[in-house]
Nucleic acid binder design. Structure first.
Lengths: 252, 252
DNA sequence: CCATTTCTGTGTCATTTGACATAGAGCGGC
DNA sequence: GCCGCTCTATGTCAAATGACACAGAAATGG
């Protein structure tokens, strides 16, 4: 862990030059709001894979926007069983719940190297006080995250192992596609099988075997951290997953 | 279904005389905010058990505060498998996600007879525009609901059948206790075993057998819609559920 | 009051998933 | 180049959970 603790080596990206915003997934924003966000952004952090963004139980956690890379939220039982609650992709807010409460009831961890925009928790209130449109967007992003968790709960509770894997891949596919990160059906896929197992409520071994089964069915191939989706339609119907990613969403 | 379609027979309860607010679970509120909420409240509805509060896929769903009774949110797969996402108790907001998006990705259904305060969806924006404190509270309530779903996902993914049931009972116990609805360890418990199964991702039969096992262990007794918790501490450690209900939360 | 339905309880057996063991592939450190 | 690692793969067996069948209890509706 922490091979290159790049830590706070921030190449500060001004929000006016935000490369993420240019990808087309996000709704337009006024100059005023953009200036406010830029003002609020205190730092631009780079963390290595495996780093804690928010520790479970942490008090006074800050709020972040994931600028680049993958992360996830998770909860762990006292005896060590771990459940990944959802995966976080560029543009996602990290730590909204944690910022609303005293202590965070979950942890957030970097999956790949990540870049984060730090939005100090103390300033969240100023958003509500001065920028109602932005406050609404914060709430909107919170609601969207909840709908992801809802879907994951549906998977864990009511889909079998194969369907769960299919639904996970399809949902990530749609989210990445909206960010223009899918090229000819090929998407970045940095998850280990342990991550998949922890996200779907399966054992590692069973995850491995179910993945193998789907691969043998010709649903996808996976190599060097890239997943090639040969048959999105079939996989989608197999997963019984039909939610659509919102065309335009806010970015804060 | 719909034995007494009490429907819109509303005995309008002015927010100034809100009996729920008097129970001590909610944080104090200014006169101004209370007046604003009272102004926003368009109706006071009574719906029978089983009634749809929000239908899955419904567009333009309204926002409600549950004033009395129990409800739940759920998602259903095309082939009919159903997952209850969380249970809703008095003071909970219903339909925040649905109000933020075009269409609701989940359904909300009355479990007992319910009383609802109708907060028109069109007025949500006015809250953000004019009442930043209330807007913050809306977001806070959204975050709290997400943390409930997080916990349920942890259950479905990583707890076994017995632990899931224990965790469900304990979490409902804590929420009801905060509302002063637990009397000498006795709490109202209107769930059928099918509801429990759908909430925990178990089959009906297995739920029945696991419940019987916990009853035989002397953890609780259940009759006439009332659950008597003989051994909260033991049940809690058995469930590995340790989240606390927030002492004071907003009520809108 | 009876007929009907829903809910609960329990036995038997099938299926899914998990646990354990082992092995090879890939990768970083020295 | 070799030694830890971690990650992936696969076989065998065990445990948890689900499916089906049926029966009694309790609510519901004429």
């Amino acid at each position: 862990m922490a091979k290159t603790m790049t830590g706070a080596v921030g190449v500060r990206v001004p929000c006016f030059e935000c490369a993420l915003r240019a990808c087309g997934a996000f709704k337009p924003i006024s100059e005023l709001e953009l200036a406010f966000i830029n003002e609020m952004k205190r730092d631009h952090l780079v963390l290595p894979p495996g780093a804690d963004i928010i520790a479970a139980g942490q008090e006074q956690a800050e709020l972040y926007t994931l600028y680049a890379g993958w992360a996830f939220r998770c909860k762990t039982l006292p005896d060590g069983r771990r459940q990944i609650l959802n995966f976080l992709l560029p543009g996602d807010l990290i730590g909204l719940q944690a910022a609303m409460f005293e202590a965070s009831s979950y942890g957030a961890e970097a999956l790949t190297e990540v870049q984060l925009c730090l939005l100090p928790r103390r300033k969240v209130w100023q958003v509500f006080e001065n920028m109602p449109e932005l406050a609404f967007d914060v709430t909107w992003l919170g609601a969207r995250e909840e709908s992801h968790v809802d879907e994951n709960l549906l998977s864990a509770g009511r889909r079998n192992a194969t369907e769960r894997i299919a639904a996970l891949i399809i949902s990530l596919y749609k989210r990445l596609d909206a960010l223009k990160l899918v090229i000819n059906g090929a998407m970045p896929f940095p998850l280990s099988q342990q991550h998949i197992a922890d996200a779907l409520g399966l054992s590692l071994v069973h995850t491995n075997k179910s993945l193998a089964k789907l691969r043998r069915l010709g649903m996808f191939s996976l190599s060097a951290g890239t997943l090639l989706l040969s048959n999105p339609r079939v996989l989608e119907s197999l997963s019984q997953y039909f939610d659509e990613e919102t065309p335009k969403r806010p970015l804060i």
